[in-house]
Simulated assay, not measured.
Amino acid sequence: MVGVWVVLGVLVLGGVAGAVLKARNGRIGAAKETERALPGPVADALDPDAAVTLVQISTTFCAPCRHTKAVLEPLAERTDGLRHVELDVTDQPEVAQALGVLRTPTTLAFSPAGKELLRISGVPKGPAVLEALEEHLPAASSRPTQ
């Protein structure tokens, strides 16, 4: 009888943990306040001509990272002032550590000056990203071009 209770307890805890992770996936959060300089690969990825550069932190064997790229790359291509860059940190964990990134994919939005505007944990939803960045993008291009 004790074994049945243990199995039920594990199933309930697993279900709760799964629900929490699912709820947090794709969540857009506030930027982390930091006074540290950006790591070199991130600073090099910033586009001074783009109003916002989305830097996607990925790893080699991350399946959700491929989904994130499939959402953000076309979004950036059809939105004026928005650029997407994928940065693989598999062999450079110090970059993720310096940015305070604990999981992949994490996408950070930066201004041309390198100020972090927001963070997206997990696979984002395109319209939610545009809505969150609306105040930072040029007024005429806050909506994707057709």
Rank of each mutant, 00 (worst) to 15 (best):
V20C: 08
R36V: 09
L46M: 07
G15D: 14
W5A: 05
D44F: 07
W5N: 00
D44V: 04
G15C: 09
R24G: 06
V16D: 02
L46Q: 08
R27A: 15
V4T: 12
A23W: 13
V4R: 12
A30L: 11
V20I: 11
L13F: 12
G18L: 13
A43E: 15
L8W: 04
L8D: 00
L21M: 06
D44Y: 10
A43Q: 15
G14A: 06
V6N: 00
L21C: 03
W5T: 00
V7Q: 05
A31Y: 07
T34G: 07
L38F: 00
I28A: 10
E33F: 07
R24S: 07
A19N: 10
N25E: 02
V10A: 11
L8Y: 01
T34S: 12
V4P: 08
G40V: 11
A45T: 10
A17P: 15
V16A: 04
R24P: 02
L11Y: 09
G3C: 03
V42I: 08
G26F: 05
K32N: 10
G9W: 00
W5D: 00
A31V: 05
A45S: 10
A45R: 02
G40H: 11
G29S: 10
V4A: 12
G18H: 08
D49Q: 14
A23T: 12
T34F: 13
L21K: 08
A23R: 15
G9L: 01
R24Q: 09
G18P: 07
G14S: 04
A43K: 15
V7S: 03
A23S: 10
G29I: 04
L21Q: 08
L21D: 02
W5C: 04
P41E: 00
V10L: 15
V4F: 03
E35Q: 07
R24V: 04
D47E: 12
V10R: 06
A23P: 13
A45G: 03
L21I: 05
G14K: 03
N25Q: 06
T34K: 09
A19E: 02
G3P: 03
E33T: 10
V12S: 02
K22L: 12
R24I: 09
L13N: 08
K32I: 05
D49A: 14
V20Y: 09
I28N: 06
L11G: 03
V2P: 10
A37I: 02
L21V: 04
R24M: 12
G3D: 00
A23H: 13
V2E: 11
V12R: 01
E33V: 08
G40N: 11
L8T: 05
P48Y: 07
N25G: 04
T34Q: 13
T34Y: 08
G15H: 10
R24W: 13
P48R: 08
G26K: 00
R27I: 11
V10F: 11
T34W: 05
A45E: 01
N25T: 00
D49K: 14
A23Q: 14
V10P: 09
V20N: 06
R27C: 13
L11F: 10
V4D: 04
P39G: 06
N25Y: 01
V42G: 14
L8E: 04
G14R: 08
L8Q: 02
K32G: 06
V6M: 01
A17M: 15
V10Y: 03
V4N: 07
G26W: 01
L13V: 12
L11W: 04
A19K: 14
T34P: 14
A45V: 05
